[in-house]
Write a protein that binds this DNA or RNA. Sequence first.
DNA 1: ACTTGATCATTT
DNA 2: AAATGATCAAGT
Length: 230
Amino acid sequence: MPDVNTSTPQTLSDLLKRARAIAGLTLGELASGLGEQPPATLRRDKGWVGRMLEQALGADASTAQAPDFAALGIELKTLPLTPEGRPLESTFVTCVELADPDAISWETSHARQKLARVLFIPILTHRRTPPGERLIGQPLLWTPSPDEEARLRNDWERHMRTIRQGYAHAITAEDGDVLQIRPKGARASSRVWGQGPSGELELIQPRAYYLRPSFTAEIIARSFALSTAS
DNA sequence: ACTTGATCATTT
DNA sequence: AAATGATCAAGT
């Protein structure tokens, strides 16, 4: 059973060292080191992989609206990847702030804060691979390039314009080149207070921002190119 | 095959 | 009830 240090890393270099140390392990091996057992399927345990990695790397206890590693300003994300490097899923970013859209700008948005510095942990897997057999990949610390941030911002500002005009309910997953908005709730009938067309309060379906797989694929490809450059 | 909309567990 | 961790599964 591998020995897994679960204390909170104090420096970026410590965190990266820790992440590199668990690369190459299966999630089953990691779980074993943490005294846990992997579920047979993620169907009823969709957040298991993320929680396992948070624990293994010593992320701060879930403090609302703060990065996973608050002292380092780093957000942790697992990214399911085929062995060929293709993301299997979109990446959850944060819930859309629907209540008071006039008060928010890109600079102060939760979305930008979440995406400012992200430590991606690739999980090499196919859809049918049991969670315990999935392989932890090499970590990738990402800060949006100026171009990437411009594209994120462009999508975010278009979404927010629609929301401010009171048409949040009309946004679909097809909107946004790299940053999409999809429903996010306990069930399809969930509702939160949002802003209607005349500025009045209106109950609408809660939504969240997601990075499209094509965007995270770019990030991964760029990193791979760097890591193999001679 | 891939995407969109729906869903599940946990914690605060 | 809402936010965070995501993946599922129906539809195209």
